[in-house]
Design a protein around this nucleic acid. Structure first.
Lengths: 177, 177
DNA sequence: TATAAAAGTAAGTAATCACTCACCAAGGTA
DNA sequence: TACCTTGGTGAGTGATTACTTACTTTTATA
């Protein structure tokens, strides 16, 4: 990967995340990245192709996390590991900001948010854990915890100085982890 | 209010909510509303003025709801009333879709999402209720329930055939309401 | 060293954008 | 009737958009 290609990807991620995909013109990306506008289209064919490339880049992080949660046997540990996900969001904040903004865009752009592999694995593991721990309604418990984790991720995206540890501990306590 | 003005407001809300503010051009609104493009600017001065007018329109619904929650004395009833909010979202789905999409836009447009009056009243009432019910940590309980209600609202926005009643009942049970 | 592919640029393109302007029509009031 | 405000139109405006084209430079390799 050439340096200018990396420059384009980095600048575009930053602008897409913080000013919105629609609000970011290819000329602005080129200008801020210090490259000619034509180069963007040489590398990524279209503005949407650039978005696609950016979204695919962060998939490795996600696959690593899935492996970590899959390797847990102890159901309590599974639930505990779930709470490690929001901090992961912090470490790649612009990417997740972009993800959440795409989720609430028009249907045409929502495809780029579909981290279904991650979400499905997450849900399956949690439901199994709740079942092994003899919770009354493992399905609904999973839906609730997915919501809670999702909100934590959203918060991590938008707060600069890390996370609200008191709140995290409070929720963890509810699950005795 | 004239008929054509209403047409503009209705069409713009529908398009802003379902295709995004940035993706909706004033010419498209005019075309679909069956009016001339110039009329939009006669009535609302700018595209952003139109957005502003739309966002202000739904404030009455919100104020009604605030009054309802404020008039509750019984703390259990306060928590129960909180669960009435997501169905309210269903009754004006396009407006709330727009609200959530604006929340994840660039900072320039986020001002139109600030339903702070609603959120603050909500939070204050819930915290008071949790305190009266002798919960260990009323602040954190409030944050958690606000998250749960927020997620329910998001779900109500995006599902066509009403709400996931089983999940709502499951959560209500946790609060014994 | 010759050469071809890849990296990169500057100056375009047509289309679309939000917005304006000159003008018309209807309705209320003096 | 005269006149003025308000509602409404259609054909513009310049700026910006995503994208292209013709061209040059760098890099890899046979």
């Amino acid at each position: 990967m050439t340096k200018k290609r990396e420059q384009i990807l980095g600048t575009a991620l930053e602008l897409f995340a913080n000013e919105g995909y629609q609000n970011t013109s290819t000329s602005k990306i080129a200008c801020q990245a210090g490259v000619s506008e034509g180069l963007i289209f040489k590398h990524f064919q279209s503005k949407e192709g650039l978005l696609h490339a950016i979204v695919n880049l962060a998939n490795d992080d996600i696959r690593d996390f899935i492996k970590r949660i899959e390797n847990q046997d102890d159901p309590k540990k599974v639930i505990e590991t779930a709470f490690d996900f929001p901090p992961l969001v912090s470490s790649n904040r612009d990417f997740w900001k972009l993800q959440f903004s795409l989720k609430y865009q028009c249907p045409a752009k929502q495809q780029y948010h579909e981290k279904k592999e991650l979400i499905n694995t997450f849900e399956t593991m949690l439901e199994k854990a709740f079942r092994e721990l003899d919770y009354d309604n493992p399905e609904m418990e999973t839906e609730l915890l997915m919501n809670i984790i999702g909100d934590l991720c959203r918060k991590h995206c938008n707060t600069d100085n890390g996370c609200d540890q008191e709140y995290i501990n409070f929720v963890k306590q509810k699950y005795e982890v």
